[in-house]
């Protein structure tokens, strides 16, 4: 177990190094940092000074080393557009995205798993057929269209819920939360539904497919031949086998949620990291792009590593891999 943990951490560190290198290459070769940081009428001397000051004259390797060292400490330099440290910008925006993703993920899991099980167990019922159609709609209708339709219905027509922003937030020592005010909670509803809907349909389809597969497995047939009641077959013998792979995919999906938050945040002008990132892409604000890439990759890597570890805890076949002979 320990060796596995170590291997996994080394792997994660390697991925981060690759990502940081890509970020560095973007930073170094995309656009000219000097003309981006100085006003247009800056003199030649001012430009040369700044080049020297931010170290663009140093050898390539030194620059690379410095970038990696700074990045590891969360320092990504100045945003070209806002002229503020990128790390400040991201830190400000992080809680908004984190809360949105958290609510959406919980919603997606809480609905997706039971619905997936239901459709797998009653594949021919009309509710299942209906859910299959809805889920196909869910993965075919672009999320931003869903968001717009939600706004059109609940904000424009009915006027029940806000269509942009986070509402009132409470600052808890650097972490702004919308969970504590009524307007904050109301503002969360539409964006989190929009973000969750797609993931929910994905989880539902995945659970359904896995469960149908498992129900065809020999060990389920043998359990049925032993006269085990359906309740036990479905919710004990089949469910655990179903959820193990689903858990892995969900880990990846969590990353997907962070990425899709970019779209949700744009539709609802949600002041999160994704909104910041899309503005950065729009204006080629390279330091912000690079920092977002590194931060999001870091989150992915952490989540994936945790999921992998959990997988080893839950699946007995992997848990005792080392302690017994591999052969049969």
């Amino acid at each position: 177990m320990f060796a596995f943990l170590l291997r996994r951490i080394v792997q994660a560190a390697l991925v981060m190094l690759v990502v940081a290198s890509i970020a560095f290459l973007m930073f170094r070769f995309l656009g000219d940092p000097i003309s981006n940081l100085l006003p247009e009428d800056a003199t030649v001397e001012e430009r040369a000074d700044l080049r020297e000051k931010i170290g663009l004259n140093d050898p390539f390797v030194v620059q690379y080393g410095r970038f990696i060292t700074n990045a590891a400490q969360g320092d990504f330099g100045q945003s070209y557009r806002n002229n503020r440290p990128v790390s400040d910008l991201l830190a400000e925006r992080f809680p908004a995205t984190a809360e949105l993703v958290l609510v959406a993920a919980s919603l997606a899991l809480a609905l997706g798993i039971p619905l997936g099980i239901y459709t797998a167990l009653n594949p021919r019922g009309w509710i299942s057929q209906g859910l299959q159609v809805v889920s196909l709609l869910g993965i075919s209708v672009p999320t931003f269209v869903t968001g717009i339709l939600l706004i059109l219905l609940f904000s424009v027509t009915l006027g029940w819920l806000p269509s942009f922003g986070r509402g009132e937030v409470v600052d808890l020592g650097g972490w702004t939360t919308g969970f504590l005010t009524l307007s904050g909670l109301k503002a969360l509803i539409l964006p989190s539904i929009m973000l969750a809907l797609f993931q929910m349909t994905l989880i539902m389809r995945l659970v359904r497919a896995e469960m149908l597969e498992v129900l065809r497995a020999d060990y389920i047939k043998f359990a049925r031949a032993r006269g085990m009641p359906n309740r036990m077959l479905h919710f004990k013998y089949a469910l655990k086998n179903t959820l193990i792979p689903v858990m892995t995919i969900f880990g990846l999906q969590l990353g997907g949620l962070i990425a899709f938050a970019i779209i949700t945040e744009t539709v609802f002008q949600w002041p999160g990291m994704g909104f910041l990132f899309i503005q950065a892409v729009n204006f080629s604000d390279v330091p912000v792009m690079a920092a977002y890439l590194v931060l999001v990759s870091f989150l992915f890597v952490v989540i994936n590593t945790i999921v992998d570890l959990l997988y080893h805890v839950v699946d007995p076949r992997l848990r005792v891999e080392k302690s017994t002979a591999r052969g049969v």
């Binding site: 995309l30 656009g31 990353g255 950065a280 892409v281 080629s284 792009m289 990759s297």
Partner: peptide, 22 residues
């Protein structure tokens, strides 16, 4: 593997940002 571990929309956005930046 690295590409697959990122959501496609994010990869597309990044490539897009890089190309436009260039």
């Amino acid at each position: 593997d690295v590409l697959l571990s990122f959501p496609p929309i994010l990869v597309a956005l990044l490539i897009n940002g890089v190309l436009r930046g260039a």
